[in-house]
Design a protein around this nucleic acid. Structure first.
Lengths: 261, 261
DNA sequence: AAAATTTGTCTATTGATATAGACAATTATA
DNA sequence: TATAATTGTCTATATCAATAGACAAATTTT
């Protein structure tokens, strides 16, 4: 109604909330849509950290739903550790900002996160040796069916999962890289053991989808969450492919910053 | 069960489907989760174009749900024009590929799509003059509250919406750019009228979220769809910001290719 | 102290989601 | 031609999602 008055105010035309009606009978419940919008509002800065959300009745009116529906959305975000509700006082924003992941030709994953998280580490979940799929073989420039090493890793910042990667390496060239990864916890350090001091990100393809069951478990997400997916090929400075990797990032906790490369 | 046999075959460890259980009481209905997974399987190449999907009973068994639930998922994808069901024969994959959007320091949106779509155009939906929000002012390096021109555009390829952009320009410097855009349908061509022959993409921040109501309408998406969001600043070669833009891409139809630049 | 505000809990009702089973209609196969 | 396989339609039932209203509990404001 009079929400339209804000249109020219220029406060936040983008975050949308504006004429934010919801879609019914869509397969996505209203409470989840509202939870997503609240998350988005927080990310965009509509609600500051430690600030109080509008009261439930106000939110219900804004979204055009029953108060209980708003409560379901809030309950999910409280469960997620995003909000804290206090009886009689209000509902408050806890954590706010998303980790900003720099992506560039030379960016290593553990770099560039300085100041954003105090503790940053990579956990090796699984290592396996297997024949290369067509996709992996093409990416690494190997013959179809060549033997490759697959490493499954999870990145954590301050104890929270922020990335989940699957990387493939030529088994002939990088035998034992799984042990190196387990020891050093870093791809860059592991490459150095194989005489590779520098490497570049040759190409990156980016997409997004709903998190599947494996992602939900590995990244500690709630069902319905979105993951950003990057598929990248890393090469030596002379253009030789050394790693093919698919990385999933929880969209609610991470944004990707494409630096001028 | 014997699906695990595929694990070492290396067919598609990534697309997941593997131990793809679903999440119940998650706010996202099972039929939508299944529809998303089928879409993903198609995108990843598990189901080729024109190929038949496994029969409904097989899918129901694989996902551990009732046949009718699978039917709901298929019905949604048929509605979307992704699948075609034929009684007695089976269900078949119609369209497959996602448009691949190149993103680089010098990439213009209409460039680089050669061969992927025969008809490519940009439609100006709305133009407005308004005070700059904090976010926009910072991006353009203007004083808070400076007057800016906002352009709302939709990109189409072969008649299908593939992008939805909101761009801001300094009104003092680019007065009349709305008319130029309406006439030329191109940002690059419009800039040339203001004496700007070349410009660079200074920074790009990438995120993903569920499409909101406005996106659903503008991009012709089904509720629950995911959009990739880029927030970028374009600058002249000497570093002067000339455009601040947020673009939404439908994740089911578009992937972003970060070219090495 | 009293009133107003805000979150928490409870009951009840309606519609969408999911399961279950049966059978029809269409097509492909033996 | 008969059989099998596959999608389409129908009925019935249980659970989740959403609405509605009332009141309790805690906190802030008057």
């Amino acid at each position: 109604m009079d929400d339209r008055a804000k249109k020219i105010g220029g406060k936040e035309m983008i975050g949308q909330q504006m004429a934010s009606s919801l879609e019914r009978r869509s397969g996505v419940s209203l409470w989840r849509q509202i939870a997503d919008q609240i998350l988005q509002s927080i990310a965009v800065g509509d609600f500051a950290e430690n600030a109080a959300l509008p009261p439930e009745v106000a939110l219900a009116e804004r979204y055009g739903v029953n108060r209980h529906t708003v409560r379901s959305a809030i309950a999910a975000l409280v469960q997620d550790g995003v909000l804290r509700a206090e009886q009689g006082r209000g509902t408050f924003v806890l954590s706010r900002k998303r980790l900003s992941y720099p992506i560039g030709a030379r960016t290593r994953f553990s770099e560039g996160l300085q100041g954003q998280a105090s503790e940053r580490r990579s956990v090796l979940l699984e290592a396996a040796v297997e024949p290369a799929s067509r996709r992996v073989a093409e990416g690494l420039g190997l013959a179809r069916g060549s033997v490759v090493i697959r490493l499954e890793t999870r990145g954590e910042a301050d104890g929270q999962a922020v990335s989940r990667a699957t990387g493939w390496f030529d088994a002939a060239r990088f035998a034992g890289i799984d042990a190196a990864m387990a020891e050093t916890g870093s791809v860059t350090a592991s490459f150095q053991r194989f005489g590779i001091g520098d490497y570049l990100r040759q190409s990156t393809v980016l997409s997004a989808r709903h998190a599947d069951a494996a992602d939900l478990a590995d990244l500690d997400l709630q069902p319905g969450a979105i993951v950003l997916v990057t598929v990248a090929v890393n090469v030596t400075p002379d253009g030789q492919p050394i790693q093919f990797a698919e990385t999933r990032f929880p969209a609610e906790r991470v944004e990707l910053k494409l630096s001028a490369l």
